[in-house]
């Protein structure tokens, strides 16, 4: 093979934090979350996991082959974040024999009310506009969250966030590009984009709700109070919406409750599909 060809197809694994690295730190006791941090990691892990599960459905069904790959990349990023957060959370909720729960214990063997994801993440893919609307909200929210979490006093949370924030920054760009194109494309695409935003917007408020856990963690400098993200989120999403000549949807907020395990009717189906095989073979390794 010619040198030029070799340089055009050079492949390297890169160097970044992987879920396996966190699992190793957990096993060797290097990473040990407090009970509060574990619960918090569970929340963020569940958010990312449910979204990855939703996005994975697009692979082989996207509007164009190039977009199969783009959505696949976002799904893989989210799944990576989920695995890191859940692995870390597992160290805070040990099994009866004292060993940490694994990412798979948490993903496959919890019941619906034990999931801590907010309801936005489980909303159906709908058409491409609805998926982009959900991704737009999620990415701008996660970017503000992870950006601040890189400063966490909890070193593992900070490390996961440092890897995630760069990836989520790209998700922001991807979704914003599509918001502009769908809003400014054809009459039909504009109608669908507006509809997509309206179906997702009721679940936005829940993202920014503080509770006792986040207040305690924020005080300790380990996490960020969700309410403090809202100003930047509002400002930056408004910039994109303005450019797209769209308005922030005027729709009532849903009551939410995902953080306490109260979910919309969709999560049960997601879990049924995700968990079915693992539960048919409890204790098996794959």
């Amino acid at each position: 093979m010619s040198e030029a060809n070799a340089s055009a197809t050079r492949i390297t694994p890169g160097n970044a934090l992987r879920p396996e690295d966190i699992a190793l730190e957990v096993r060797t006791g290097l990473a040990k979350p407090t009970e509060d941090v574990a619960e918090y990691a569970l929340r963020l892990g569940d958010d990312a996991l449910i979204l990855a599960q939703r996005l994975g459905h697009w692979i082989s069904r996207a509007p164009e082959l190039e977009e199969d790959i783009a959505l696949g990349n976002i799904a893989l990023d989210q799944l990576g974040h989920a695995r890191s957060f859940l692995t870390y959370a597992g160290a805070g909720v040990p099994n009866q024999d004292g060993t940490a729960k694994t990412e798979d214990d948490l993903a496959y063997f919890r019941r619906e009310h034990e999931f801590r994801s907010v309801q936005l993440f489980e909303q159906p893919n709908g058409d491409f506009a609805a998926t982009i609307a959900r991704q737009f909200v999620v990415s701008y929210y996660q970017y503000e969250l992870y950006r601040r979490l890189t400063e966490s006093t909890d070193a593992t949370l900070a490390a996961i966030a440092a890897k995630a924030v760069k990836e989520v920054d790209y998700h922001r760009d991807h979704s914003a590009q599509w918001v502009l194109r769908l809003a400014g494309g054809t009459d039909e695409s504009r109608k669908r984009m507006i509809h997509g935003l309206r179906t997702m917007w009721p679940y936005v408020a829940e993202l920014f709700r503080d509770d006792e856990l986040t207040e305690r963690l924020a005080q300790a400098g380990a996490a960020v109070a969700p309410s403090t993200l809202k100003e930047d989120f509002d400002r930056l999403t408004a910039e994109v919406l303005n450019e797209a000549e769209l308005e922030v949807p005027d729709v009532p907020a849903a009551p939410g409750g995902g953080r306490e395990g109260k979910h919309s009717e969709y999560l049960g189906y997601i879990l049924a599909e995700m968990q079915v095989l693992a539960r048919e073979h409890p204790g098996a390794s794959w």
């Binding site: 599960q53 994975g56 459905h57 692979i59 790959i69 990349n73 693992a278 794959w286």
Partner: peptide, 22 residues
């Protein structure tokens, strides 16, 4: 992809199917 029995396998499978699109 949606039923992969571990998260590691799910990630691998997703990356593989994505490669096939590529």
């Amino acid at each position: 992809i949606s039923r992969a029995p571990s998260l590691k396998r799910k990630a691998i499978l997703m990356a593989k199917v994505q490669d096939e699109a590529g």
